[in-house]
Nucleic acid binder design. Structure first.
Length: 239
DNA sequence: AAGGCGCGCAACCGCATGCTA
DNA sequence: ATAGCATGCGGTTGCGCGCCT
């Protein structure tokens, strides 16, 4: 048997996600969860490979994600964790609620670049006392403090402890139901034979309408009501 | 004002791993 | 025991935007 690739090259869209695609994916996962990433795009009406959908959800659409700059605490924690864990970004991300491994990885690479440029400028400064440091260009001044104050001994305990005992963030692992949680009858039943086709439902449906497919196993409070999920959608789900 | 350059971010790719039939 | 599948993970790439010259 030939192993089928995740991303068959035929007809699958690549590149930046459009708002419409985001809506479809978000609406589908909100409603049904990520029961099978490979099949999901087909049912959600997306011309994407499952891998791409998963990545988009995990790194961008997932609720409770922090956006924006890393705080000093977070940066310090990343440095500290990287010392002990190395490039295990997912493990590092697990200690930083709301941050993704991709985000941390990207941030680290930027951090590394700055470190290197700083070292170069320092070594140049040692060779030439007339060095004014202007070669170490900080074009987007917001990160300058990091270079000046390397994050040594950051106050990480609070973060570590809170992340350990606080409720887990809404993530693919914790809040999207596991496949194991779904009974075989549901997975093999007629419900799954009918695609979700989010673009069929292009109107906003208030959540309290109770409109759910008869066999959806994902309607329970556990899935829909955890983590203040509704707020992210202005109390409305887009079908 | 315009082009070049660098950074940050999103996304892709390939490999690893665990599970299942 | 093994092959295939699904998913996770880390490395890498490409694009857009803002700053600099």
């Amino acid at each position: 048997m030939v192993r089928t690739r995740c991303c068959e090259k035929t007809g699958l869209k690549k590149g930046t996600w459009t708002p419409e695609e985001d809506l479809k994916l978000k609406a589908y996962i909100t409603r049904y969860g990520s029961w099978n990433w490979r099949q999901l795009p087909k049912f959600a009406g997306l011309s994407r490979c499952g891998k791409s959908c998963r990545l988009r959800w995990m790194n961008y659409l997932r609720p409770n994600l922090k956006r924006g700059n890393f705080s000093k605490d977070e940066e310090g924690l990343i440095v500290k964790l990287h010392e002990s864990l190395g490039n295990r970004w997912s493990a590092i991300a697990a200690q930083l609620p709301g941050r993704t491994d991709n985000e941390i990885k990207n941030h680290w690479h930027g951090y590394l670049k700055k470190q290197q440029s700083q070292q170069i400028s320092v070594s140049q400064g040692e060779k030439s006392s007339s060095n004014d440091g202007s070669k170490c260009k900080i074009t987007r001044g917001k990160k300058l403090e990091i270079e000046i104050n390397p994050p040594v001994n950051p106050p990480t305990h609070e973060i570590l402890e809170s992340s350990q005992f606080s409720p887990p963030p809404f993530s693919g692992e914790s809040s999207c139901f596991a496949e194991n949680d779904v009974s075989p009858e549901i997975l093999s039943g007629s419900f799954w034979t009918e695609p979700f086709l989010a673009d069929k439902y292009d109107t906003a449906v208030p959540l309290d309408t109770g409109f759910f497919p008869p066999y959806s196993p994902f309607v329970g409070e556990e899935f829909l009501c955890s983590s203040g999920f509704y707020d992210e959608f202005d109390n409305v789900l887009i079908w």
